Amino acid sequence: MNEAQPPAAAGEPDLRRETANRLRIGIGAFKRRVQDAGAAGELSNPQLTALSRLDRLGPMTTTGLARREQITPQAMGATVASLEKLGLVTRSAHATDARQSILSLTPEGLAAVHSGRNAVADKVTAVLEESFTDAEVAVLAAAAPLIERLAELL
């Protein structure tokens, strides 16, 4: 427990556990609705996630991508194979390990990841504009980096 935070008094709900459960439920529902809203022909969430990782972190192995997403290398391999088939990623020889290859975005992959991000961002932006106050958007903007950090630490 963080020493700056006093322990919960007897009978008080554990704020951290309640927050963890509400985040799990809310983020899960958000992910499902974003996936459901995807139009036919758009990249899947796993495909966009893999492309986004390569865009942000640079070239890496399939195993490296799998580790970042906390999935098996076999599952990531299926996603990478589909991205290769679409011409969005390319493989090159690993500098020190001939058993591995390095994945990189193609120019088409770079364009796809940016357009994919924009499609989702456009949908979320529309909902934020229609249904949230400026103060609520400010709270979400402040929470976003914390949620990203939480995801990285899990």
Score class of each variant (00 low, 15 high):
R149F: 04
V89M: 10
A141R: 08
S115Y: 04
E152R: 10
A121H: 05
A39Y: 01
T125P: 01
G11Q: 06
M1W: 06
R56I: 06
M1A: 12
I71R: 15
S92A: 05
N2R: 14
T125E: 03
T62D: 06
V139G: 05
H94V: 02
A121Q: 11
A93I: 00
A112K: 08
E69M: 14
G41Y: 07
L23E: 10
Q100P: 00
I147W: 10
A20T: 01
L51S: 15
A9S: 11
E148L: 15
S82C: 12
R56W: 13
A39F: 01
R149V: 03
H114F: 15
I147Y: 12
E42L: 01
G41H: 03
A93F: 00
N118C: 07
A135V: 10
D36W: 09
I71F: 14
T49G: 14
G109Y: 02
E42R: 04
A111I: 14
A78N: 15
D134F: 02
A121W: 07
L23N: 11
S104C: 02
A9D: 06
E108F: 08
T133H: 04
I25K: 04
P73R: 09
I147G: 08
E108P: 02
S131A: 13
A93D: 04
A141Q: 00
S52H: 15
A121P: 04
A81T: 13
A66V: 01
T133I: 11
A81N: 12
A40F: 03
D97P: 00
H114P: 15
T133F: 09
P59A: 06
A121N: 07
A66L: 06
L154A: 12
S115G: 09
E129D: 07
H114N: 15
M76E: 12
T133C: 08
S101F: 02
G58K: 06
L154R: 14
A126P: 03
P46G: 12
R149E: 09
Q47K: 15
A95G: 02
Q74M: 12
M1Q: 09
S44F: 13
E129L: 00
E129Q: 01
T96I: 05
R68I: 12
A75Q: 11
E42G: 00
P59Y: 03
A29R: 13
V127M: 06
R99K: 04
L83K: 04
T106W: 01
T106N: 06
A119P: 08
P107N: 13
V137N: 01
L57V: 02
G116Q: 04
T79W: 08
Q100Y: 00
R117H: 14
M76P: 06
R117T: 10
T90M: 02
N2L: 08
A10G: 06
V113D: 07
K31G: 11
E84Q: 07
N118M: 03
G64H: 10
I71A: 13
L23D: 11
A143T: 09
E12A: 07
G38W: 00
L15P: 02
R32L: 10
L128Y: 02
G116E: 06
A39T: 01
Q47Y: 13
I147P: 05
A93K: 04
T79H: 11
V139A: 10
G11R: 07
E69S: 13
V80L: 07
A81R: 15
